[in-house]
């Protein structure tokens, strides 16, 4: 089909405004392959038409375009270390603070994608019951992508997906077999609340949280957007909380709302 530079720029600008996702030049091929199905779904005949329609589009079309431009790839226990830190550093320390003031411990997974991350956190919570010693724990999982959240909420994964990162023991403890697929058991599903949330918008509905996993999403944003989002995340966090970023993400020169911890370069604590 092909797309003019001007059209590419217009659609890229729309995607950045809506989601913060910054498409570098030369992503035209990716844009074409991801938006072609959206166009046929909405009966739009060319990228030029799409670009003009987006300006005054229905929220369904806008949502569908943003959704198509998100990259939702994820794995269970991705990179492993963050989950070791979660069990060995974050949970015990935060639990102690929480127990002192008698409040529940709240975890927020801010780019939950298709759910592997919040379910890995839920498994870790269940494996650390002795540390938690009866403390009430809940997990909020949010993402901008409705399609990804749909998968996350269904808790249904292919045999390939469950084998990426889940040990056999964890698989049979926390999943039921459903034909050729595997579905999360209710005891895990119950710990998590799923919600659609754009990190660029107000984060008030998140409420106060203690542990934030915000991995592999800020990489799509420019520095100003990163700084703004991190400032808003900070406001939702308790002072004794932790922020876990992705393996390639630092905050040097981005924000002074957080400082890296001695334990790990991608694990941060809020400054007061």
């Amino acid at each position: 089909m092909g797309m003019q530079q001007q059209t590419y720029n217009a659609i890229a600008r729309f995607v950045a405004q809506e989601s913060g996702i910054k498409l570098s030049d030369g992503k035209a091929y990716m844009m074409e392959s991801r938006l072609t199905p959206v166009m046929s779904e909405f009966g739009i005949s060319s990228f030029e038409h799409l670009a003009t329609q987006l300006m005054a589009a229905t929220s369904e079309l806008r949502q569908a375009v943003v959704d198509a431009m998100t990259t939702n790839e994820s794995f269970f226990f991705r990179d492993r270390t963050p989950f070791d830190l979660f069990s060995n550093v974050m949970l015990p320390r935060v639990a102690e603070a929480k127990r002192a003031n008698g409040q529940p411990l709240r975890i927020w997974c801010a780019a939950a994608a298709t759910g592997q991350e919040p379910y890995s956190l839920a498994i870790s919570v269940l494996e650390n019951q002795t540390v938690l010693d009866g403390l009430d724990v809940s997990i909020l999982a949010t993402d901008i992508s409705q399609a990804a959240l749909g998968t996350a909420e269904s808790g249904r994964y292919t045999q390939f997906e469950v084998q990426r990162g889940l040990s056999a023991q964890r698989l049979i403890t926390h999943f039921d077999q459903e034909g050729g697929a595997w579905r999360v058991k209710p005891h895990l599903r119950e710990l998590i609340e799923f919600k659609e949330l754009n990190l660029l918008k107000s984060l008030h509905q998140v409420g106060k949280v203690d542990i934030v996993f915000c991995r592999n999403v800020l990489i799509y944003f420019d520095v100003e957007t990163k700084a703004q989002v991190l400032g808003n995340i900070r406001k939702q966090m308790s002072n004794t909380g932790y922020l876990m970023l992705g393996a390639a993400e630092t905050l040097v020169g981005v924000t002074d709302h957080f400082l890296p911890t001695a334990e790990h370069q991608n694990l941060f604590q809020p400054t007061s």
Binding site: Q159, Q163, S167, A168, Q169, L171, I172, D176, Q177, G180
Partner: peptide, 22 residues
């Protein structure tokens, strides 16, 4: 690739279990 086989293998002393195709 069913729960029963996986559980049996782990009980017999296997450390991990991978289902084909991998």
């Amino acid at each position: 690739n069913d729960v029963g086989h996986i559980a049996m293998a782990l009980k017999a002393g296997a450390n991990e279990y991978m289902m084909k195709p991998f």
